[in-house]
């Protein structure tokens, strides 16, 4: 049985919340990119908003938008988050490690539970079916999507809301800065992929998708969502080629390739050059100069892929190499050095 993406919503450092590709990207000279947030008061009832952390606001607002755009109300919720509710986790960790351990406020503890968002969405939209959260770094979205596909195949669900979310974390920024993970100097994000320097810029975002067992008029099929642990033992190219075979596709079928290049001179080519060469005639697109790097950033690319298959033109500011043909099938490839992750979507 096939799965279809019948709605999508993306909160990101770009003006994507409006639902179309922005004419011009937001240009920032910084070490990180933060979401261009909407006025949450217009979206989330004040009684809920009061105790919500940043990531919960991001996620709940984006889930509302995605559900509103969907022709079918989802019966299940699956969230994939790379690092989880880090903001309140850090707050509570500081409270019990730096202050006296007495009766602390439980609110940040409650909000630090990584499935809090999925629970809040269930409560806010009264979705009482299957409710799952994957906490798995760069493989989180792919686990969530493949679980959703299995739910549809089983007949457990007719429409599942899948979310991918990560928030900016000052602590992660500080910790991972120690191994050349981030840029040392602020950079104009549009020049990120050109400048040959080590490190990425950090980002954040929330991408939500309604996955249904029946297509809507856009007819966008979610073909595959796969992950593999990467211990450097097997060539990425072979894994991707085998996957294509498994789904009865060839390299020629892929018209558009999204790669997770993040502007890191030390790892970008080793992670992506081989895959890019596998598809010599495809259009190649990148997005981490728009989204920043965060574990579930491939959701930014999935949102773009859905827009392209809905008939919007891939913006020049996301195009690394223009191909010559129209776009029917899109492959997304992201490699964070510990896992490799592939999503395939196509016009049905």
């Amino acid at each position: 049985m096939a799965s279809y993406i019948i709605s999508s919503a993306l909160l990101s450092p770009q003006k994507t919340f409006e639902g179309t590709f922005p004419e011009e990207p937001i240009i920032t000279e910084s070490l990180y990119l933060l979401c261009a947030e909407p006025d949450y008061k217009q979206i989330i009832p004040p009684v809920r908003l009061r105790r919500m952390s940043h990531i919960l606001k991001m996620g709940l607002a984006t889930s509302y938008l995605c559900i509103n755009e969907s022709e079918v109300k989802p019966d299940s919720v699956i969230v994939g988050t790379g690092q989880g509710c880090t903001g309140d986790l850090e707050n509570f960790m500081r409270a019990c490690s730096e202050g006296p351990e007495e009766l602390l406020s439980p609110i940040p503890f409650i909000n630090s539970g990584h499935n809090t968002l999925a629970g809040q969405i269930a409560m806010a939209s009264q979705i009482k079916g299957y409710n799952m959260t994957y906490l798995q770094e760069a493989a989180s979205l792919e686990s969530a999507l493949s679980d959703a596909m299995l739910l549809l195949e089983e007949g457990t669900s007719e429409c599942t809301l899948v979310g991918a979310i990560d928030e900016f974390s000052a602590l992660s920024f500080k910790i991972f800065d120690r191994d050349q993970y981030w840029r040392k100097e602020a950079v104009n994000n549009l020049d990120l992929l050109k400048a040959e320097k080590p490190g990425a810029i950090m980002g954040e975002g929330a991408g939500f998708f309604c996955i249904s067992n029946r297509p809507d008029r856009q007819n966008i099929e979610l073909v595959a969502s796969e992950s593999k642990m990467n211990f450097g033992t097997e060539a990425s190219v072979k894994w991707v080629t085998d996957l294509l075979n498994q789904y009865n596709l060839t390299t020629n079928d892929i018209d558009l390739l999204f790669v997770g290049r993040k502007g890191d001179q030390l790892t970008d080519d080793t992670s992506y050059a081989g895959i890019e060469q596998l598809f010599p005639t495809a259009t190649i697109a990148a997005y981490k100069h728009l989204s920043g790097e965060y574990p579930t950033a491939q959701s930014f690319a999935l949102w773009m892929a859905v827009k392209v298959l809905s008939g919007q033109q891939l913006p020049a500011y996301a195009t690394l190499k223009a191909g010559t043909r129209g776009t029917k099938t899109i492959l997304l490839y992201n490699n964070d050095l510990s896992t490799e992750n592939v999503i395939i979507v196509r016009k049905g």
Binding site: H114, N131, T133, Y134, L135, Q136, K228, M229
Partner: peptide, 21 residues
């Protein structure tokens, strides 16, 4: 932790991590 367990035990298949308290 799951990646370290997989590495230690020579597990090569797909890996999932669930977090629902």
């Amino acid at each position: 932790i799951p990646l370290d367990i997989a590495k230690e035990l020579g597990i090569n298949g797909r890996q999932y991590t669930i977090s629902t308290a």
